[in-house]
Design a binder for these strands. Structure first.
Length: 648
RNA sequence: GCCGCAGUAGCUCAGUGGUAGAGCGCACCCUUGGUAAGGGUGAGGUCGGGAGUUCAAUCCUCCCCUGCGGCACCA
């Protein structure tokens, strides 16, 4: 038998017979390691203890102390255990796939009846029985035809299809625990009892298309979460509760920011508090844009079909457009219009007025453009995904050789805004040429390189989103990570030579000839509606003072202090602070609680002591202790803190 | 759009084949209270919309709308 050389984590090497398994290696090291071992890393790959090693390799034995390997195995095996439990309870259910994901796993089933919450309880109970049975996991490599015949015989059509999708040269592994069998690439634990029985939970059932394809059957997906121990599971469930508390739909109600109702699905009724956030953010963006060389325009909402046909939207985007037909009294035919889903065609119309010179470029045309898109009903989500929204949109008309410089300028612009708004953790993705595209390979090469180079020049790294660009050009996407680790794609930057062509935009070059400009579509926050939702959730409603709709409530402790409270409010208002008095016949405890729930950043309480000393008792949101300050002191402090970041 | 679940007072929710309840909020009264809910009284609902079954429907059936969780979508 041939020998192979294994390298251990400590750098030692050992000659062993080819075909040795990690289980045997662990056994050779120590009895206790053999007992604790759960899997191995072989040349960096996650390796089942039972898989033979046939060539020279580096090897490390994993135990339950190795979090990544342990969680992977626990979650993966739970997917199989759940599938087995389901088939034991309902033998006619067809199994499909069940990958590890996020904090757990999911498994998709084909079953005529929907799973109910009671079913989930039954499945969970059955899973615990399987775990307690400590069934040994067995593995065998089968040849392809045998697997296919097996799944034809057992009437598992999805497995047959999966089998056919496995590349021809990969070994096909069959696993068992108990009598239950599955096709799976592994690795696995050694027996079901290694899975902690009290550290998982089935969360919910949802529909999911087979292979993610909306033309394929809808399956039922059961989601589960799993951890190494019960404490970790509990911590996760607590985290979910905390996340639910910062849900912008809930905070939107508690802070009286907005509401939505069924007469206008996907559109927002902004209340005074919410609209204050909106206009504050928009004012800030306008100042930033003005300072960065943009000109602001405003264009029509309802635009005739002719323009959408010329731009290509009528052909490619019509299903997402609100169509407005108007019977004009004297017209022979109805005129057909659409609410604009995007601003770009209108901006080209502005550009096309009058002859443009190369001296006018780059022309940075901005609009807080109100758009309407008929989003699929299932996509709507609070104020994050809506049918009526306003973008911080702009189009930069420029020549080819200005693309790179404009890209870099934009990234620097965006970075400053994200920092001002409290987001320092964000990344750049470069989406490259898709399969269906226009333009030459040389053009794509050049423009993709321009975007990549500009990103680096601005001081940022990027990852590639292969094939995710628009059909007319590549794009950059800016994804920010919020306070609880969720990613949101907000900023975008797209190179578009297509629309100027379609809408016949041109400028006169230095050579006196007509040239075609390129358009750079760009946005920083994306839609104000969605971005405000992100801000609310990121800050859990505790917005920085400059964005907070109600900045200060002056609360009377006794009614004899009412007049003084009003005086304090007037003084704050005169200094530009958004302040109101709370003179209601309630105890200070009640007022403090209510305004804390309403996320008011500062409560200034005033009783007779404050009246006599002309002071206030300041309580900052989220803090328990209070501070007695003179009127002048608190006004000065608040004025300083309430300044927008660009005005400090 | 697809699968599943849900829709009862402003909010959170309970409930029943015989025209409905709680807590909070709201109004009024008492209380003037020192930093996260003081007490009392009262008002408030076409039980999402439509059709059907029934002597009778908020409750059962069907259709629609909206929301929620996913999936798909996000030229």
């Amino acid at each position: 038998m041939s020998q192979i050389s294994l390298t251990f984590p400590d750098g030692n090497t050992k000659e062993v017979p080819a075909g040795i398994t990690p289980a045997e290696i662990a056994e050779g090291i120590s009895k206790s390691l053999a007992k604790k071992a759960i899997s191995a890393q072989v040349n960096g790959a996650h390796w089942d203890l039972a898989w033979p090693i046939e060539e020279d390799a580096s090897i490390a034995i994993n135990t339950m102390q190795d979090d990544e390997a342990a969680l992977e195995l626990i979650r993966h095996d739970l997917a199989h255990i759940m599938a087995r439990a389901v088939q034991e309870l309902w033998p006619d259910v067809k199994v499909t796939i069940g990958p590890v994901r996020d904090h757990g796993w999911f498994y998709d089933f084909d079953r005529a009846e929907p799973f109910t919450p009671e079913d989930l309880g039954a499945i969970e109970a059955r899973m615990k029985e399987i775990i307690n049975a400590r069934d040994v996991v067995k593995t065998e490599v089968w040849d392809r035809d045998r697997v296919r015949q097996h799944y034809i015989d057992t009437n598992e059509p999805y497995k047959v299809e999966l089998l056919d999708r496995i590349p021809g040269d990969e070994p096909i592994r069959m696993y068992w625990h108990g009598d239950w069998q599955d096709l799976c690439r592994g690795p696995h634990l050694q027996h079901t009892g290694q899975v902690p029985a009290d550290a998982f939970k089935l969360m919910n059932v949802a529909g999911a298309y087979w292979l993610g394809d909306s033309s394929r059957p809808m399956l039922q997906r059961i989601y589960g979460v799993a951890f190494k121990n019960r404490e970790a599971l509990k911590a996760h469930l607590t985290m979910l509760e905390e996340a639910a508390k910062r849900d912008h739909r809930r905070l939107g109600r508690e802070m009286e920011l907005f509401h939505m109702q069924e007469e206008a699905p996907g559109q927002i009724f902004w209340h005074p508090n919410g609209w204050r956030i909106y206009t504050t953010l928009q004012d800030y963006m306008r100042r930033k844009q003005d300072a960065d060389g943009y000109v602001e325009v405003n264009t029509p909402q309802v635009v005739n079909r002719n323009l959408w046909e010329a731009s290509g939207h009528w052909e490619n985007y019509q299903e997402h457009m609100f169509i407005v037909e108007v019977d004009e009294e004297h017209a022979r035919e109805k005129t057909v219009n659409a609410l604009k889903p995007m601003n770009c065609p209108c901006h080209v119309q502005v550009f096309n007025q009058g002859l443009k010179s190369y001296r006018d470029l780059p022309l940075r045309m901005a609009e807080f453009g109100s758009c309407a898109r008929y989003e699929p009903s299932g996509a709507l989500h609070g104020i994050m995904r809506v049918r009526g929204f306003t973008q911080d949109d702009a189009h930069i008309f420029c020549s080819d050789d200005q693309i790179e410089a404009e890209t870099q300028k934009f990234i620097e612009f965006l970075a400053g805004i994200y920092a001002d708004l409290g987001f320092t953790d964000w990344k750049v993705k470069l989406s490259t040429r898709p399969e269906k595209r226009i333009g030459s390979e040389e053009e794509w090469d050049r423009v993709e390189a321009a975007l990549g180079n500009a990103t680096k020049a601005a001081g940022y790294d990027y990852t590639i989103n292969e094939g995710e660009g628009a059909f007319y050009g590549p794009k950059l996407e800016f994804v920010l990570t919020d306070a609880i680790g969720r990613d949101w794609q907000c900023g975008t930057f797209q190179v578009d030579p297509n629309l100027p062509e379609r809408l016949d935009a041109s400028y006169i070059g230095r050579d006196g000839e007509k040239h075609r400009p390129v358009m750079l579509h760009r946005a920083v926050v994306g839609s104000f509606e969605r971005f405000i939702g992100i801000l609310i959730e990121n800050y859990a409603g505790k917005l920085p003072l400059w964005l907070a709709p109600r900045q200060v409530v002056v609360a009377a402790i006794v009614s004899d202090a009412d007049a003084y409270c009003v005086e304090v409010v007037e003084k704050l208002k005169a200094a530009g602070i958004r302040a109101e008095a709370d003179l209601r016949n309630e105890k200070i405890n009640y007022k403090v609680r209510e305004h804390s729930v309403g996320k008011v950043p500062y409560i200034l309480a005033c009783g007779m002591k404050e009246v006599e000393d002309r002071t206030v008792s300041t309580r900052k949101l989220g803090e328990k202790q209070t501070k007695v300050q003179s009127l002048d002191e608190i006004v000065a402090e608040l004025v300083a803190e309430a300044k927008a970041p660009d005005q400090r």
